[in-house]
Structures are given as structure tokens and as C-alpha cells.
């Protein structure tokens, strides 16, 4: 009876229209939103490649008629902050000098702390951890001055070392959480087997935990690199002007009230400052996503 229906009627996949209302809505929305998201990047790039006369005449969205790299050169080597006119390069190198030790120290300390909290818990360790996590929610403003006092007592106030300490302190909650949560997923038997074999605290960490935890170290480093590079508040509060990181110097260049505003130089400087985190972002891809899904605690 039903056999008569065979070979007639619908067969195979449902016919699909590429331009179904659903797809138009879906991709249309995404494309419009994507354009809004890309717009600032585009404006930054085109502005930084125009000369000032062209900027004054044209509109900010039009591509440069005459491409010039002069603004980039000026932003890097000549732009003035106060009396210094050696460009953003000073801030860049300051940021690098802050970034490298800060990332190394904060990631090392956070990973070891996470290791303690996952495999070597002791009485009270969970309480300290809870306090640490709550600390992530304390507005920085509450702690700004107490930290100034601590640094002053240690003789580190205003120095780069002081800023490294500050980044280590404030990066701790999220990174410890990240490491702890990763380490608890490692098989406990492995840890037990190593202990039965007579390995101690450091041996287990270096020879067993580290080799298995590369991805989480990368995630933590991504969080720290972007976070520290983008920091403004700590840089302003805890360093002297000659040690100002790039973000602070950028703000001082762009928002300085003296002289004529050179928008092309400003945008080149802004792009230069954004280049490091953008590079990290575009090259790390999924790991960055993983980092912020966990790193959202940082606020």
C-alpha cells in the first residue's frame, strides 16, 4: 500500500533558499553589528594615514587621498608630553619593562598558589582563597592608598619594581582561580603516584604539573599581558612621570591642552598603543576567549 508512495514525493534534503527570511535576519544583523564594531578600527587607521590639511577638509570615514606615514613617525618619536618630546617610544619601552617582569612574577606566583590550593591544601587555605576571590570585587580605589603606604615602607613607591608588585597583587585573584580550577581537573591519582614515588612539592610541580598545564599558562599570560599593558590607573598612581606606561603617556599626548591638536598623530599613537593587545588577541584566538570567560572576574 505505502509502496506506491515510494519514489514519489519529497526525497533527500529539504530544498533550501540561501536568501530565506531567517538567513537575511541572521546574517543581516550580524553584519550590521560587525560594521559598527569595525568602524572605530577603520577610522583610526585612515585618520592616522592622512595629513592634517586633508583631515580638516574631508570627513573621518573617507580613505586617505594621499597616504602618509609621517603621523606614525611623529607619534613614535616626536610627540610631546609636557616638556619631553621624544614620542610614545619612551612609554612603549616603559610598558615593556613593566610588562615582562610583571607577567613572569604574577604568573609564577599565581600558578604556585593555585597548585597549593588544589593539591596541598592545608587548614585555612580555603579561607585565604575565599578572601582572595572576594578581593577581586573590592574597588581598586579602596586599596589605592594603603598600597601606596606599603610601597613607601618597602622603598618601592614610584619605581618599576613597585608597579610589578602592584600588578602581581591585583592579578592574583583571577589567575589563582584560573590555575586552581585547572589543576583540580588533573587526575588525582597522578599526584598520589608521584608522592608514593617519593617526589616532593617542587618535583611534582616541575616534572608532573607543569608539562600538563601549558595551555592554562598561556591563558593566564594572555590575561596578564593584555591586562597589564592596558592598565592606566596603577601606572598613574604608582609610577613617576619618567616611568609612565604607554597608556598614560598616550592619554597625556592626546588630551594635552597645549598646542594645536594633530588628530592624525593622535590616532597613530592610539593605534600604536592598541597594537600589542590586538596582536595578542588575533594570534591567541580561542585561548583568549577561554581566558576572558574565566577572566571576567577581573571586571
Amino acid at each position: 500500500m505505502t509502496d506506491t508512495a515510494t519514489l514519489t514525493g519529497p526525497t533527500g534534503p529539504r530544498p533550501k533558499k540561501a536568501l530565506s527570511p531567517r538567513n537575511i535576519m541572521l546574517y543581516g544583523t550580524l553584519i550590521v553589528v560587525s560594521l559598527y564594531y569595525l568602524l572605530p578600527l577603520y577610522v583610526m587607521i585612515v585618520t592616522s594615514l592622512k595629513g592634517m590639511p586633508e583631515i580638516r577638509l574631508g570627513n573621518i570615514f573617507s580613505p586617505p587621498v594621499e597616504v602618509t606615514f609621517q603621523p606614525w613617525v611623529k607619534a613614535w618619536a616626536e610627540a610631546c608630553t609636557g616638556i619631553n618630546c621624544d614620542g610614545l617610544s619612551r612609554g612603549f619601552w616603559n610598558s615593556v619593562r613593566i610588562l615582562i617582569p610583571s607577567v613572569l612574577v604574577s604568573v609564577s606566583i599565581a600558578s604556585i598558589t593555585g597548585y597549593v590550593l588544589s593539591m596541598w591544601r592545608f587548614k585555612g587555605s580555603e579561607i585565604f582563597f575565599a578572601i582572595l576571590l572576594l578581593g577581586a570585587f573590592i574597588p581598586y580605589q579602596v586599596l589605592l592608598y594603603p598600597v601606596v603606604i606599603v610601597l613607601r615602607e618597602l622603598g618601592l613607591y614610584g619605581s618599576l619594581t613597585g608597579l610589578v608588585v602592584v600588578h602581581t597583587i591585583f592579578g592574583m585573584p583571577i589567575n589563582v582561580l584560573l590555575f586552581r580550577n585547572y589543576f583540580v581537573t588533573l587526575p588525582e591519582e597522578l599526584f598520589k603516584a608521584a608522592r608514593v614515588d617519593g617526589a616532593g612539592f617542587w618535583r611534582i610541580f616541575v616534572f608532573i604539573i607543569l608539562p600538563m598545564s601549558l595551555p592554562i599558562f598561556v591563558v593566564s599570560m594572555i590575561i596578564q599581558v593584555t591586562g597589564i599593558w592596558n592598565d592606566f590607573l596603577f601606572g598613574v598612581v604608582y609610577t613617576r612621570p619618567e616611568n609612565y606606561p604607554m597608556t598614560v603617556q598616550l592619554n597625556n599626548i592626546v588630551n594635552s591642552v597645549q598646542g594645536v591638536q594633530e588628530y592624525n598623530v593622535n590616532m597613530a599613537a592610539t593605534l600604536l598603543t592598541g597594537l600589542v593587545p590586538l596582536t595578542v588577541y588575533f594570534f591567541s584566538g580561542k585561548l583568549f576567549v577561554r581566558g576572558i570567560a574565566a577572566g571576567a572576574v577581573k571586571g
Partner: peptide, 12 residues
């Protein structure tokens, strides 16, 4: 595209 601004600092 939708996430890259998050990598940039508030200053930028």
C-alpha cells in the same frame, strides 16, 4: 570582530 574591542584598553 565582536570581541576585539575588549582587548583594547579603555584609554584607546
Amino acid at each position: 570582530i565582536l570581541l576585539y574591542p575588549f582587548a583594547l584598553s579603555f584609554i584607546v
